[in-house]
Design a protein around this nucleic acid. Sequence first.
DNA 1: GTGAAAGCGCTAACAA
DNA 2: TTGTTAGCGCTTTCAC
Lengths: 354, 354
Amino acid sequence: MVRKPTRKAAAKPPDIRTVAASAKVSIATVSRTINGSPLVSDKLKKRVWQAIRQLNYFPNTHARTLVSGRSRLFGIIVENITNPFFPELIQSFEEIAVAHGYEILVSSSNSDPNVLTTCVRRMLERKVEGVAVMTFGEEETVLDQLMNRDVPIVLAEFSLDDPKASTILLDYATGIYEAVQYLAKLGHTKIGFLAGPHTLHSAITRENDFKAALRSLGLPIQKKWIIECDHTLKGGVAGFNKLRTLDVQPTAVVCSNDMTAIGVFRGAHNEGLRVPQDLSVIGLDDIDFAEFTLPPLTTIRLSRTDLARAAFEALRQQAEDPHNPKMQREFLVSTSLVVRGSTAAPPASENPKN
Amino acid sequence: MVRKPTRKAAAKPPDIRTVAASAKVSIATVSRTINGSPLVSDKLKKRVWQAIRQLNYFPNTHARTLVSGRSRLFGIIVENITNPFFPELIQSFEEIAVAHGYEILVSSSNSDPNVLTTCVRRMLERKVEGVAVMTFGEEETVLDQLMNRDVPIVLAEFSLDDPKASTILLDYATGIYEAVQYLAKLGHTKIGFLAGPHTLHSAITRENDFKAALRSLGLPIQKKWIIECDHTLKGGVAGFNKLRTLDVQPTAVVCSNDMTAIGVFRGAHNEGLRVPQDLSVIGLDDIDFAEFTLPPLTTIRLSRTDLARAAFEALRQQAEDPHNPKMQREFLVSTSLVVRGSTAAPPASENPKN
DNA sequence: GTGAAAGCGCTAACAA
DNA sequence: TTGTTAGCGCTTTCAC
């Protein structure tokens, strides 16, 4: 047997038959070896691995998927990959997935239902074994699509009465309460809220949790101080500007996410207001940047790692042991206040007794 | 024909045979219709599409790939998905890819050669038709892997003498020259540079371009003012602190990327230095955040959209028309200065004549 | 333990 | 124009 020159070998990657021939075994044995079947003798196993290494062979995922029905692919759909919260989430999710031998397909919906529909469709075509829908409240569009195909899904803070669906409950209330309580202790009584877009469930939940916190602390809820923004930097600036048009203005604002809060920094700066001396600002998410803003952002941390872990675990259970009656179908991720430099007592000119 | 109840239908997704039966044609006709072959009569075409819609059918990508040899998958490997530059790049790349009927596989190497190797391996297993290696200078590890498999690749600022490789040349020099020139006009003569890690080619290129700019403007090159950082926020703070230990300190710094520059903001603030009054700072990348820092960051823009477009185009040509002799193998992406608020004349105490 | 052979769902060559 | 059929590379019965 004369070995083909390297150049030629590159033309067509080795397949399972090449390996079998080279190791002088059947393709079944090669397949078994690769998949760690216990029914292969050590002798053959060794020969096969040697051939594999020598040929630099690896299996074709598509063929594998086609015949086994398992793609070892999970999809993750995020709301907006441009918000640093999401890359951080994806990063964690990918790490965990790869560590377990899964691959991920990423899509960013950009809050556009049409884009979302296409994303899901593409994932379905690739035969994903599960989808993590991390859009935080825009999932209606895709639910039917996914459910009809019997694909396991995991949703953030959105429960679904379906055996294939798992839920990650996000306990915003705790963190938001801590934040409001902290501001109250500092002496603030006039606290505003820059909400996320009302098309997002999570935004509404956060807003409600904020109101509830105010209520249980005996603080007034001023409708005018609650402004709908869009979770972007620009939106934060705009929201702040709206706040400035009011006769009576809050001395502190809690924001529905960090991007909004950082936008407020800019808005305040434009108006010559100092954070935190003139205005206290609290964000939500605790993106990596939060530590590096000027001043460093006080914020409510929502752990990406915890979220990613829960999402992966939910999908893994569904994929690998779908009929286990004691499968965990609900996961909880909590939030907590991280105090940094964007909060202080209200300006002295403010009379704390209203 | 009695329709199966929905519950049952969900058990197994329809395949091409189901559609063929339902439309009363052969599976070949279904395949042709889906793939837009001109050899199908309008009558049959209509019947097929109707059946497809009715069954909510779509083709199995794995089967398709297996037989056609085309996966319509591109890989993109970035250095660090946590640096906002990269999500923005991925976003553009994905949009373009999807618009052309391609899917993307994303991986973040985190500057770890082992991770990189696994990424590539996984992509190869999935039979990607091309890989965009956007690691900016850590590509050696993967080159052989990729080249041995004859997979088209596109590299940022790294030329390869291989018919399957394309290059995107990044013209940092122009933008960096503009930046230095601008600082010089402002009256700065003592200009430092916070470099990226020297394991990255691009970091070295940027540093050299900086030195060249200094030279051609007749400004002194002080080795002490050039400090190696790591392109992260933390690294920027650390780099700034090193600068502060020097006897003679620069009045302006150009940074190898925006993250470093934002880190410098923090470092300066810690030391009670005001930007830009006491220190001018210029970044590179122009990430979305740059507009929203305090002060807004003057920076050298490197367009993610241009980069993504070039990368996709390079791969598309390789995938769809690999033997075209006039295929474009080199692409150029330029940079330019964006003046915002982090630059000003040097402090009055500084004597411009040195 | 090991191998032969039957498909997984699709495309493409070939017939009709 | 349409249909029939041979695989794509692999896993998985089923015999041996």
